[in-house]
Simulated scan of single mutants.
Amino acid sequence: MYTHNKQISIGGAAAANAKAALIMLHGRGASATDIMRLAGEFNAKDMAIYAPQATNNSWYPYSFLAPVEQNEPALSSALALVDEVVAQAITDGFSTDKIYFMGFSQGACLTLEYITRNAKQYGGAVAFTGGLIGEELKLNNYKGDFANTPVLITTGDPDPHVPLSRVEETVEILKSMNANVTLKVYKGRAHTISFDEIGLANQHVFI
């Protein structure tokens, strides 16, 4: 089993001039460089971009629906790395309400798990095909108040990796913690990010 080294790719606007920070989390088998290419599709030209790199290009080894113990220590290490990226953004001058998150697939699951364990008013979050992590969700892991943070969650139905039932369960938990959640389900969509989803992100989160 593995843990993650601190490797963070930085791009976008220089932090000193940026209006906000965007933390981008790549999917399984992908890289920080891959996910950063997406930034140009969003209303994010005035944002500093931070993209951590997973060891072995994977944030945790098994399905996000596996018992959490099977995905340790990688999962805890991944969450700690995201926390380090948030701390770096804060050090660079961004308050948490100016910090945005975006992830795809495994990165979407990690995004949702991190922000729900550390709920506060963020700039916003986009989870392209993901849900909260674990065979069973332990509600006592989730603490804080999102204070109306906009969160977009999109998914296909059916999706080969992410069941709609877990996405819906995730939405209800976030709503109970005062997130302003938009859910969009695409019938028969492949496991990818569509132009429509990017448009929704710009409409609901990167506005």
Score class of each variant (00 low, 15 high):
Leu65Phe: 14
Lys143Asp: 04
Pro61Cys: 01
Ala89Thr: 13
Pro52His: 03
Asn56Lys: 01
Ala190Thr: 10
Ser194Thr: 10
Ile133Met: 09
Gly156Tyr: 03
Pro73Met: 01
Gln70Leu: 15
Leu38Ile: 12
Pro67Val: 06
Ile207Asn: 14
Leu110Arg: 02
Ser63Phe: 09
Phe195Ser: 07
Ser176Gln: 05
Asn140Val: 15
Asp92Trp: 09
Pro163Ile: 09
Gly199Glu: 11
Glu69Ala: 15
Ser58Asp: 02
Ala108Tyr: 10
Ala20Glu: 06
Thr192Ser: 10
Arg166Ser: 15
Tyr114Gly: 03
Lys143Pro: 05
Ile173Trp: 04
Ala125Ile: 09
Tyr100Arg: 01
Gly40Gln: 06
Gly199Asp: 12
Ala119Leu: 09
Ser194Ala: 11
Asn180Phe: 11
Phe64Ile: 08
His161Ile: 09
Lys6Cys: 14
Asn57Lys: 07
Ala87Arg: 15
Tyr50Asn: 14
Phe42Gln: 05
Val68Phe: 04
Leu22His: 11
Glu136Asn: 12
Glu72Arg: 01
Val85Lys: 14
Asn57Pro: 11
Ala54Arg: 00
Leu65Lys: 08
Tyr100Lys: 01
Ala32Cys: 07
Leu174Asp: 08
Trp59Asp: 02
Thr111Phe: 06
Ala147Asp: 09
Ala54Ser: 02
His161Val: 13
Asn43Lys: 13
Ala201Met: 00
Ala80Thr: 11
Met177Asp: 05
Gly144Trp: 09
Val205Asn: 01
Ala30Ser: 15
Ile90Tyr: 03
Arg117Cys: 02
Tyr62Glu: 10
Ala15Asn: 13
Asn180Ile: 12
Ile10Val: 15
Glu197Leu: 11
Gly12Lys: 11
Pro61Gly: 00
Arg117Ala: 12
Leu75Glu: 01
Thr3Ser: 00
Val205Arg: 00
Ser58Tyr: 00
Ala16Cys: 14
Gly27Ile: 02
Pro67Lys: 04
Met24Gln: 13
Tyr50Cys: 12
Thr33Gly: 11
Met102Lys: 02
Ser165Pro: 05
Ala14Phe: 12
Gly107Cys: 08
Glu169Cys: 10
Ile115Met: 02
Ala74Phe: 00
Tyr100Glu: 02
Ala74Gly: 03
Gly199Tyr: 10
Trp59Asn: 03
Asp83Leu: 14
Ala21Lys: 09
Glu135Tyr: 11
Gly188Lys: 06
Ala127Arg: 00
Gly27Lys: 01
Ala39Arg: 13
Asp46Arg: 13
Gln70Trp: 08
Gly103His: 05
Ala21Thr: 11
His26Ile: 06
Phe101Tyr: 13
Ala66Arg: 07
Leu112Thr: 10
Phe104Met: 08
Lys98Thr: 09
Lys6Ala: 12
Val205Met: 05
Leu79Cys: 07
Val162Tyr: 04
Ser165His: 09
Leu112Gln: 13
Tyr60Trp: 01
Asp157Ser: 08
Phe206Tyr: 08
Ser31Gln: 05
Ile153Trp: 00
Asp92Leu: 10
Asp157Gly: 03
Gly40Lys: 07
Val86Tyr: 07
Ile207Lys: 11
Gly29Glu: 04
Met177Cys: 04
Phe146Met: 03
Glu172Trp: 08
Asp34Phe: 13
Tyr100Met: 06
Asp97Glu: 09
Leu65His: 07
Asp97Ser: 10
